Computed example of a mutant assay.
Amino acid sequence: MAYVERARRTGGVTDYPRAERALRTSLRLRPGGNADALEGLTALAVARRDFRAAERWGEEAVRVAPGRWTSYALLIDAYDGLGRYKAARATRDRMLAVDSGPAARARAARVSWDQGRVRTRRRRSRTRRQPRPRRRARRPRGRRGGYGPGNWPGSGDAEQSLRYCEAGGSASAAGEPEAGACRARALVALGRTAEGVRAYRAALARRPSAEVALRLGELYESLGRPRETRKQWGVVRALVARSAAAGVDESLVLGTLEADHGDPAEAVRVLRAEWERQPGLRVADALGWALHRAGRDGEALRFARRATDRARGGEVRSGLRVSPGVIERAVGLEAAGRRHLEERGG
């Protein structure tokens, strides 16, 4: 578990094979009732985006030790990655029955947020020290349905998002590993792009991440800096290859890179294979966008609608790459497309 945590904090993916060897040795030495090893293998699989394995290990972990809320939290991640949203909500309820403390409630609130239940999420996560936002910031308009180049931090006030990100980075000596990239996204959303570039660079220096490197490249591109943009695509590909060697699935990042800055047909191939393995909302969203970029709008519309289907957990997830309205208008459904774009502020 120390290897998994170190990799999470530093981006040192070579720790993942070490973690796997240690955890499997633990299971071999104590094969019965070893909840620690089972939970560790679940955390490792989630970190690698291997949600099938995470589901298998997580279900065994909660069976062996049904009183550990942390195992339920990891199992929720597995179900979410597989598109099993009813199972994720049921597991959330089981988790809260075991532990209703602040950490468990925060994790439960994230389920509601990810699955489009914003009011529920705000009600669960609100405390006296977290006042209701006074206003909503205007979203930057961009080519992906009005959300900008992958840099919008989510629904709500960008200034408040910046405060939360900065609080996460200063909460401990090491800070939260995602706080730097979170801060960069918020700065860009506020139009403070020079500070955003510096924040992205600092975040990557502390913790290499293919996804964050991609966001920085998209920011360079939006600022009209072609040489830095091209260099950044090379950084993204190198980080994807490094992660793959350590067993980490970076198909979403690679597919996004190919769709927008490489070969859209290759993006479709990569993301369709990922959909067959792990049909989550993020994959549906990315595949819909890749199909759109490849000129296959009829297929793209099915996945874009899937990614925003309220009944299946979509619609208000942050960071969607494209609204169904963009594709609906491309296939001649002008009225429906206009309605969807108006609903999403595009």
Score class of each variant (00 low, 15 high):
62 V>N: 05
62 V>I: 10
63 R>I: 08
64 V>F: 10
64 V>Y: 11
65 A>C: 11
65 A>W: 09
67 G>D: 13
67 G>E: 14
68 R>M: 11
69 W>Y: 11
69 W>I: 03
69 W>E: 07
70 T>K: 09
70 T>C: 07
70 T>Y: 07
70 T>I: 09
71 S>C: 05
71 S>Y: 01
72 Y>S: 00
72 Y>N: 01
72 Y>K: 04
73 A>Y: 02
73 A>T: 04
74 L>P: 03
75 L>Q: 00
75 L>G: 03
76 I>C: 02
77 D>V: 01
79 Y>L: 10
79 Y>D: 04
80 D>K: 00
80 D>E: 03
81 G>V: 02
82 L>D: 06
82 L>K: 07
83 G>A: 11
83 G>I: 05
84 R>K: 15
85 Y>P: 01
86 K>F: 12
86 K>N: 14
86 K>W: 12
87 A>I: 05
88 A>F: 07
89 R>K: 14
89 R>H: 11
91 T>V: 07
91 T>D: 05
91 T>Q: 02
92 R>C: 03
93 D>T: 10
94 R>D: 10
94 R>S: 13
94 R>L: 09
98 V>K: 04
101 G>I: 05
102 P>E: 11
102 P>V: 07
103 A>T: 14
103 A>C: 06
104 A>P: 14
104 A>T: 15
105 R>L: 15
105 R>M: 13
106 A>T: 09
107 R>G: 11
107 R>F: 12
107 R>E: 15
